[in-house]
């Protein structure tokens, strides 16, 4: 067997390697250049959403800094630790913003933030990320439709029955739009579970800025 083919493949391999290394250098450079900016963009976007659902009159603290890490919870649909943002007025708890996930959207998870007032009424809900069908299921986005405002002010005091927390098609109190029922069904269910979570963990959620321990969250 001659060594020519071996040499040729080694040379081609080396050539490919050089390009791979060059490419990696360019990418590393760009990544480092844009990293801080990307983190800031994501935070800004989140803050913007939080500001939409937490009334400015209800807090005077720095919401983004007053956080609590909540371990992954079945009730919130989260499979990794999530952040809770606490709004306080003159030191007194007023609103908590919980990150929650509806696992059963039409095409996968729907990530949301849910703001709950201290008296267990919803201040508002916003969808952070979803993959629902454009033009059909995406009316859960505030930018596309006001549907999500149905949750503003909703509470167990207003909708007393468990069955009320469903879309109208299933006998509940929440409207939906023809063409997409699975999406709002998932959203309503997740919001309701989040409200339950809040009612069960209210005191811990507003407690000092220490992580919620595993035991407390398991209940």
């Amino acid at each position: 067997m001659s060594t020519a083919p071996v040499k040729a493949s080694l040379q081609t391999g080396l050539n490919l390697l050089v390009f791979a290394v060059l490419g990696t250098i360019v990418l590393t450079f760009t990544f480092n250049l844009t990293r801080d900016r990307i983190i800031k963009s994501v935070e800004d976007e989140k803050l913007k959403l939080i500001m939409q659902i937490v009334p400015p009159a209800l807090f005077d603290n720095d919401i983004i800094k007053d956080t609590l890490i909540i371990p992954a919870s079945k009730q919130l649909g989260t499979d990794r630790p999530a952040t809770a943002y606490r709004a306080r007025l003159q030191g007194k708890p007023s609103v908590v913003v919980l990150e929650t996930v509806a696992p059963d959207g039409y095409s996968g998870k729907i990530e949301m933030i849910v703001a709950i007032r201290e008296d267990a009424a919803l201040a508002g809900v916003r969808v952070v990320r979803h993959k629902e069908t454009p033009g059909l299921g995406d009316y859960i986005e505030f930018a596309k439709n006001r549907w999500i405002s149905l949750f503003d002010g909703a509470s167990h005091a207003r909708y007393k029955e468990e069955g009320d927390w469903k879309v109208r098609k299933d006998g509940g109190q929440f409207d939906y739009m023809a063409g997409a029922t699975i999406t709002p069904r998932a959203v309503v269910k997740a919001v309701h579970k989040t409200l339950h979570y809040y009612e069960e963990n209210r005191d811990q959620l507003f407690a000092a800025a220490k992580p919620l321990s595993q035991q407390e969250s398991k209940q």
């Binding site: 490919l16 390009f19 791979a20 490419g23 360019v26 990418l27 760009t30 990544f31 250049l33 844009t34 900016r37 990307i38 963009s41 994501v42 800004d44 976007e45």
Partner: peptide
């Protein structure tokens, strides 16, 4: 393909950073 992929990723980072929406 490698070169194109690198360029696309650069564009992706840049858009993620400066045109998040």
């Amino acid at each position: 393909i490698l070169i194109i992929a690198v360029l696309v990723t650069v564009v992706q980072y840049a858009m993620n950073a400066y045109m998040y929406g």
